[in-house]
């Protein structure tokens, strides 16, 4: 199995907030300047550490949303009600603030254009599970890769969709199919509902193309989506998953 690797020791680095972008009412993108950032591969995550004045600290993991770009690293964080770290990142953090991060972490749930061939890629996102997959879409575009991508993105309703406008600019490249679980926008070809076998058959790469599948989202979504892919005939060995626990980070 091809692996991206983390070389050497992962030290904490001081990151400065360069910009903030509200993505939805509950999520925002934090643009960080991280001097000495070693670069990353799409799909990797970072650990964020917040420290109170008395030394108390809390750590969480967040997926990187951006393609590798020098010292710039973007995270998109969705508010977890009653969370400890995400409310601070989504509602308190300001431009110019500094936080500790370390990474990049993770060498499995990754897509690297330098190692990619003509293997099709099937992206399957539930909710904020789109974040590491967006890093793959952005990396594909930035690298000028022609790897065949498809995206299946399940979200509560349109207002909860991350990167909606930007995804439209990638529509030709990634053939997105959107699934709305609670309320579908007017004119959407499919009524509100969960991803199912028919949709996987119609929208995902057929199993005989042997796509590499990346499935990311809350645990229940990932369990269901991965089971549907296996039931549709996809090789379990080609399905990579990343689950977000109810507590915010990939769990």
């Amino acid at each position: 199995m091809a692996r991206a690797t983390v070389l050497g020791r992962l030290t904490w680095r001081v990151a400065t907030v360069a910009a903030l972008r509200q993505e939805t009412p509950n999520a925002r993108t934090i643009v960080l300047d991280v001097p000495g950032w070693p670069g990353h591969v799409a799909g990797q995550h970072v650990d964020v550490r917040l420290t109170a004045p008395d030394g108390y600290s809390a750590q969480r993991s967040y997926s990187i949303a951006s393609a590798a770009d020098g010292a710039r690293v973007e995270l998109t964080v969705e508010l977890v009600p009653d969370g400890e770290v995400s409310p601070y990142l989504v509602e308190v953090l300001e431009v110019g603030d500094r936080i500790d991060i370390r990474g990049p972490v993770g060498g499995w749930f990754v897509w690297d254009p330098a190692r990619a061939d003509a293997t099709p890629v099937q992206l399957v996102a539930g909710g904020s599970g789109i974040v590491p997959l967006m890093a793959m879409i952005r990396t594909r575009a930035a690298a000028g890769s022609t790897a065949p991508f498809r995206l299946l993105y399940s979200v509560r309703e349109h207002s909860a969709m991350l990167y909606a406008a930007e995804l439209e600019t990638h529509a030709e490249a990634v053939t997105p199919t959107y699934v709305y679980t609670r309320k579908a926008p007017g004119g959407h070809p499919r009524p509100a509902g969960r991803i199912d076998a028919g949709l996987v058959r119609a929208a995902a790469w057929p199993p005989d193309r042997r796509p590499l599948c990346f499935v990311c989202g809350p645990t229940g979504f990932v369990e269901a989506a991965a089971d549907l892919l296996v039931a549709a005939g996809h090789d379990p060995a080609l399905i990579r998953t990343e689950r977000f626990g109810p507590t915010g980070g990939p769990a």
Binding site: W12, V14, R49, L50, T51, A52, P53, G55, Y56, S57, A58, E84, Y88, V92, E94, D97, R98, I99, D100
Partner: peptide, 14 residues
């Protein structure tokens, strides 16, 4: 050396 996060107090659950 940890960077103090302005306005962060946390839950102290640890």
């Amino acid at each position: 050396m940890a960077t103090v996060s302005r306005g962060f107090f946390g839950r102290r659950r640890s």
